[in-house]
Design a protein around this nucleic acid. Sequence first.
RNA 1: UGCCCGAUGGUGUAAUGGUAGCACAGCAGACUCUGAAUCUGCUUGUCUAGGUUCAAAUCCUAGUCGGGCAACCA
Length: 548
Amino acid sequence: MSIPTSNFIHDIIEADLASGKYTEVVTRFPPEPNGYLHIGHAKAICLDFGTALKYGGRCHLRFDDTNPTAEDTEYVEAIENDVRWLGFDWGENLFWASDYFGRMVECAVELIKIGKAYVCDLSVDAFKEYRGVPNIPGKEPAGRSRSIEENLDLFERMKKGEFADGTYVLRAKIDMASPNLHMRDPAIYRIKHASHHNTGDTWCIYPMYDFAHCLEDSIEGVTHSMCTLEFEVHRPLYDWILETLNLYQPHQYEFARLNLTYTIMSKRKLLELVKENLVNGWDDPRMPTICGMRRRGCTPEAIRAFCTEIGVTKTESLTDVALLEHHVRNDLNEIAPRRMAVLDPLKVVITSYPEGETEEFELPNHPNKPEAGTRTVPFTREIFIEREDFMEEPSKKFFRLAPGTEVRLRGAYLVTCTRVIKDADGNITELHCTHDPESKGGNAPDGRKVKGTIHWVSARHGIKAEVRLYDRLFTSENPAAEERDFKDYLNPDSLKVITGIIEPGLAAAKAGDKFQFERVGYFCADLDTAESKPVFNRTVGLKDSWNK
RNA sequence: UGCCCGAUGGUGUAAUGGUAGCACAGCAGACUCUGAAUCUGCUUGUCUAGGUUCAAAUCCUAGUCGGGCAACCA
């Protein structure tokens, strides 16, 4: 596991540790189980767990399940799975906000008893009127002057289920004139006759985020509570609740959320794509979700390296997806065995090669790692090469196959193109080449050099495979910031499904196996793969300084 | 509009009053049985205006620009 680099929060933690304010660091990752985790969450996960790791503390995985109508166990399992896959371990420290519902009610009662909370019967719209607007102080709701006894009674009856949803709400009594709207008597408990995935029908009142979250942190002894920037204005309320209840007070720190070019990071919008079948589910390899990226072939190591690289600041930014791709290539380059696959096949007949003969060539699995071993690849008179590796009238800088030129078939022979065969429409259908039998293995004994080396697959042995070519999901760098609806900027070419010819050994690939298709890109066997019908995803292409 | 937050090359960041550095991207070259990887070199930056100081990206003031907040969501 890479060591997290430093950031402004770590500076604070180090000062806290040095001053003796804390002797141990406790953090938490607190997702609401209402959707799938995405790369933005990965940033938070790396920060929360990485910080605990760095300072020898602990990080809790806590499900912030305070809103039963939005949540589902489907998400709980997916979240646990994704965090684990990213390489983090919460050990015994799995917690649920719902486990604290009893204590939270006690805290609410305490607030009522000290005159710091009251039951309010204003409708949503009516309270909006009272709250007012930022530059104008609000008005005090009548419920504010209700007696403690009456508040206690009303809250008890709320809890017992005597009232319908929306009829009453418990509010913190703070300051209806505060310049911070969150301090204008925020709701802390609402009535919701809904079944909870954890607590069933035990409760019909549920705490609001602002009330629940600080209590959860406090109860668990969190020292540094990290969240994204939009919660900055909530911090005074976080502090107020714990201070007022005279409870242990963690400190909340805010950092900028991750934005990536050519994608979106909002759970709501991602859900929209899934619901409207604009992608093939949460784990569609084009999605920025952890499960989508996993299916696409990204590694947790690459994602962690990326998160380390982008750092943690309070500056809002839009990170170039090229940076992520760099880390994906960087890791895959190390670990992915090399294979040959032709995505756009053009048949080549080696006319000088004996018909019916098969040779087995031994090719390295990794050019820079002899320890990665070798595999054998069959060679025959008829092969497929990549259509774009041939040019009838080559440009000056083209050094692949062209009429009369010699190239190396990777690991096999030097061949020279002798004939171009076309159909009636003038499309090239086949090439004839002659080979130099002396160049077996790829090098000529006379030492002559060829500039081009191309990949190939034996026509007789090659296996057809479905290959899914993914491109960016959106055509806009920042679809969420565009004028029109983000869905108007979906890239119609974000998925192209083609049939390629792969070297025979590749058919046995298991879902998730990763390879570099030499000269083409990094690919992984998809969940849909089967030996009888292999399916590969393009994770990311190779850098290509020729094509551009 | 009120409050809060932010601003360093094209992008993401570092520099915590003392040489503006790193990575990505881009460009050029070397090497190469992957036009990959690797290696070398190069281009590009402190929002503006004042002030404090021997010295300011850093501290102060004002402005500009960008973002957040006004769910019985989190």
